[in-house]
């Protein structure tokens, strides 16, 4: 709360300064999460040019980045976001539910569940893959150390957790399709096995950093662990920054389709009189230009045909499942697995 209030105060201050400057150009604020920093920097410039070229005039786009959960809370506490581009649909759901700033069915308003780009969970291993880690079941091999952030505090870690869980389910059931039509007893037995499997993975986790960047730091700088579970785009960024001679990416047999979602914050955008710009801003993400940039910044674009072929070739083929198919959506997954008393807590409380 302390930090979100700080953000609020700060943003009020910034707004106050902005108002004092008598800036006549319309302005939109995009509240996003951490790893999109580089992408939106480039995208904003692109969109501003596009908007000007199509006769919309000069506009200003402001960005705010931070942990997705923290950013969502800041918007709930009054950070005047016109659009939100966060890590989880769940984060936007909560804003809709608690504040009514946007309608509950926000995710149906744009194509692809309002996810213009997607990502997935991959393994980052040390160069040459000395432990020969190929798939999820390698993670429970004796002596291996696995680095993941804490699913209670990190959105990214929740994807890791669910991907591992689904792998175990598929191993038990042979498929992830039509799980709701299964015999509940069979499903229950499979879930028990999945819980044991995930629990086994966490026995190999020596430290639970609070956020994804913290985990990357532990794995890369501290040299702790044999494998880091990470978002694909983050893994690419790490390799880019830290040198391909040190690390490589391993793609497991199955992983989760991570859909970082975007939405208009209707009431804020209307109050600021920038609804049309904000809507166009989000729609342009689906344009060839937007898609090309997303792929350039290591996100899997919703329409790969628009992206550069060489960018697309970086993404290995992998069987991806949607969270809705296996876990019945974020709200439910959050409740079953990550809220107090959920499966993650039970791993450590037993």
């Amino acid at each position: 709360m302390r930090s979100s209030h700080k953000i609020l105060l700060l943003s009020l201050l910034v707004l106050g300064l902005a108002a004092g400057k008598k800036n006549a150009d319309p302005e939109i604020l995009n509240v996003s999460y951490d790893p999109t920093r580089e992408f939106y920097k480039e995208y904003n410039a692109e969109f501003m040019n596009y908007w000007k070229a199509t006769g919309g005039g000069k506009i200003v786009i402001k960005q705010s980045h931070g942990g997705a959960g923290k950013q969502a809370r800041a918007v709930m506490d009054g950070l005047p976001a016109d659009v939100v581009t966060l890590a989880l649909a769940y984060d936007i759901d909560v804003i809709a539910e608690r504040t009514g700033l946007l309608p509950a069915d926000w995710s149906t308003r744009l194509p692809n569940n309002s996810a213009p780009y997607t990502s997935t969970i991959v393994f980052l291993v040390r160069k040459g893959n000395p432990e020969n880690i190929r798939d999820w079941d390698d993670l429970v091999r004796p002596g291996l150390e696995v680095i993941t952030p804490n699913p209670k505090t990190s959105g990214g870690a929740r994807w890791n957790y669910l991907a591992a869980w689904a792998f175990a389910l598929k191993r038990e059931l042979g498929t992830l399709k039509d799980l709701d039509k299964l015999d509940p007893a069979v499903m229950k037995a499979a879930e028990k096995k999945a819980m044991a499997f995930v629990s086994g993975i966490f026995e190999h986790v020596p430290v639970l950093d609070a956020g994804a960047r913290g985990s990357t730091n532990t794995f890369v700088q501290r040299g702790i662990g044999d494998v880091l579970l990470a978002w694909e785009n983050e893994a690419f960024l790490s390799i880019n920054e830290l040198g391909p001679e040190n690390f490589e990416i391993v793609v497991p047999s199955i992983s989760i389709l991570a859909e970082p979602s975007v939405s208009l914050v209707d009431k804020n955008a209307e109050a600021h009189g920038v609804k049309a710009i904000a809507e166009a801003y989000l729609q342009y993400l689906y344009s060839p230009a937007g898609q090309r940039l997303a792929a350039k910044h290591y996100y899997r674009p919703a329409y790969p045909q628009f992206a550069d072929a060489k960018d697309i070739s970086r993404f290995p083929r992998v069987e991806l499942f949607r969270i809705d198919e296996v876990f019945g959506g974020w709200q439910k997954a959050q409740k079953t697995h990550f809220n107090d008393g959920g499966t993650f807590d039970r791993i450590y409380l037993k």
Partner: peptide, 13 residues
Amino acid sequence: ITKLEQYDYAGAT
């Protein structure tokens, strides 16, 4: 912080 990440303001406070 864990509670806040679950949007459980009351629990956190």
